[in-house]
Structures are given as C-alpha cells and as structure tokens.
Simulated scan of single mutants.
Amino acid sequence: MNYSKKDIDRYFEGKLSKKEAKDFLNWLNSSEGESTYNAIIEDIWSDESGTVDILSEANTPQIPSYSQKIVSLDTLKRSENFNAKKKSRSIKLWVSVAASFILLISVSYIFNLNTTFQQVEEPIVSKEVKTIEKFTPKGNKKIITLPDGSTVVLNAESKLTYSDDFVQNRIITLEGEGFFDVVRDEDHPFQVITGNISTTALGTSFNIKAYEGNPDIQVSLATGKVRVENSFDQNLLEIQPGEAVYYSEEKNILKKQEVDLSQVLSWKEGVLQFEKVPFNQIIEDLERWYGVDFRVIGDEKIPDYKCSGTFKPHEYLSNVLEVLSYSIEFDYKINGKEVILEFK
C-alpha cells in the first residue's frame, strides 16, 4: 500500500488508529516506503512555495505536520549564505535528521503503545457458577462420577448438589444416602454437607445416610479418615474405619460408635437389611427401595415395633412383606405402585 503526504501528516497529527499507525510504520521501514518518503521530502524542498524548517522546531514537544513547517522561500533567499550548495547539504541534512526523527518517533510510538497495553487492565469477567444436581427417584440407584474423578453410589430418592467448579471447590450437598469413594487431593479437601453436619476427607471412602425426616444422620467410614463437624457448635469428631458418627437433630449432639460395615453398605449390593429398625421407618425404606407408596386402611395405626431381617439381593417386595407380616400381623395388597396395609 502507498502513502501520500496527507497520510504522513495524519500520522504526525495522531489521527491514525493504532492499526493504521502500525501499518504505516511497517510501510516506512520497507524500501518502497523509504523511497516514497524521500521523494516527498525532495518535493517539499523543491517547491517554490516554501521549505521545511525543522531546526526551528527542534525543541518543540508537539509534533507538527509538514504543512505547519513550510516557510517562505523568499525568506531563505534573503539569507546571505543561501546557495544551491547549501541547499543540497540542507536537503541531505534534513533527510538524515528526518529519518532519525522518524525512527525516534516510531520507537517512541511503539514503546508508548506497548506501555499503554501493559497499563490497561483487562476487565474482570465474573464467571457465573452453575449448580449441578444429580437425583435418583424411588426404586433406583445410580453410580455418579464427579469432575475430580471421585465416585458416588447414590441410593434411591437421593440428591447431590455441587458447582461446576468442583475440581477447585470440592464441596457437595447430599440429601438422602450415598457412598463416597474420594480421590485424594491434599490441596482441595472433599466436603459433604448434610444439613448442619459437614464431613471432610482427603482420600477415603465413607457412607452417609441423611434422609429428610430421619431423626439421625449417620456417617460410616470404610477407609481412610474423616472429620465430622456440627456447624451449630463447631463440635467435631474424627473416626477410623469401622466407626460411625451419629447426629441427633433433636438433641443436637454427635456420638461415635463402632458399626458393622457389611450391614451399613449392604444396600450397595442390593441387599435389604434391618437391625432393630422401627416399622414406620422400614415402610419409608421400602417405598424408596421399590418405588412404591404405602397406604394404611382401617382403624389401626402403624404399630411401634422394631424389626430385624436380612433379605437376599433384589428380593421381591411381596416376599419382604410376607416375612414382615408374620411378626407384625397385617394384610397387604400390591396394586401397581401402591401398597395397601391393614393391621389386624
């Protein structure tokens, strides 16, 4: 691309954009640009209307345009020492000084341009953190792989909630029951929130049961070590494999005791197991396990019994109810997703 005297004036007047100025400097550094620029200088000096007096402006901080530097040729002729030889020397001097001047201006312009780029702060773009939810309905279980590589076996009617920056912020909320197998990351502890109870681990595996309506939250450790803390009073307990922490919402206390892990984790293998569990809680577990709803008819209420039992993997609901009815004495009827109980 060729540039005219008008374009050069616009450069010195600061009327070019950053891109245009950069393109101009690239052109000026080329052989074509240098030749064209020198020709323009010669034209200015040979123009009878005037010449350029750059020396009179040497100490001027502003960069004037060529049109502002043209003075009358008659003024120069009035000088005793003005002659063609001096004019030739002046042209060469002007060209030399102008070239140096252009180089200085170019370097200064690029330096200032870079300095400006360095000083301008990039606007802070706040990334909206998105919430991710994983849910299992009644009668279903699911294995979930988290963004950091940790896995969760999520029991029926349970929900996990975490943010999409989980790798850097390993905080997850659980409603229901889940077995966590945590990838170790000492810089980012793994934290599970269940109500006001938080369970913190690095690399370990543990089970948490915290269904809504259940009076207790149970944290059972399979491997490693975890810390369980009550956010209400900052009371905390650390447990070892084979131990569990029970939290009583009614009493607001944490209690540690040993547990049978095979029983606690049997649900993962499809084994239904109860150990002195109130019958009304068993009904809730059966609703989640089989994806049904129970309805009691008649005048009798659900008796306040505690039951124990272990059923083979993926046992039919009818077989479970049959066994329970022997000890509690009730009649049952299964209508699709509804189970009717009538106590005798």
Rank of each mutant, 00 (worst) to 15 (best):
K5G: 08
D7W: 08
S17I: 03
F24G: 00
L25H: 04
L25D: 09
L28M: 07
N29A: 12
S30H: 05
E34W: 14
N38Y: 15
I44L: 12
S49C: 14
G50S: 06
G50L: 08
T51N: 14
D53A: 05
S56L: 08
A58D: 14
T60F: 14
P61W: 13
I63T: 07
P64E: 13
S72I: 06
S72T: 09
L73I: 02
D74R: 12
K92L: 15
K92W: 13
L93C: 06
S96F: 15
A98H: 14
I102F: 14
L104M: 11
I105H: 14
V107C: 06
F111I: 00
K127P: 05
E128F: 14
K134I: 05
N140F: 13
N140R: 10
K141A: 02
P147A: 03
V152S: 02
S158Q: 05
K159F: 10
D164R: 08
D164G: 08
R170I: 02
I171H: 07
I172A: 04
L174F: 05
F179R: 01
F179G: 01
D181N: 14
R184M: 12
E186V: 03
N196Y: 07
S198P: 10
S198F: 12
A201W: 09
G203M: 08
T204A: 05
F206T: 01
K209M: 12
P215I: 01
Q218Y: 09
V219N: 03
L221R: 04
K225A: 08
V226K: 02
F232K: 09
Q234P: 06
Q234A: 05
G242S: 10
G242K: 04
E243G: 02
K255T: 04
Q257W: 12
L261E: 05
L261T: 00
L265H: 11
S266W: 15
W267E: 02
K268P: 03
K268F: 07
G270F: 10
L272F: 01
Q273A: 02
Q273F: 11
V277G: 02
V277Y: 07
E284N: 13
G291S: 07
D293Y: 15
P303T: 01
P303E: 10
D304K: 04
Y305I: 01
F311G: 01
H314K: 09
H314F: 13
V320T: 00
E322T: 02
Y326R: 03
S327G: 08
D331F: 09
K333G: 04
V339G: 00
I340G: 03
E342Q: 05
E342C: 01
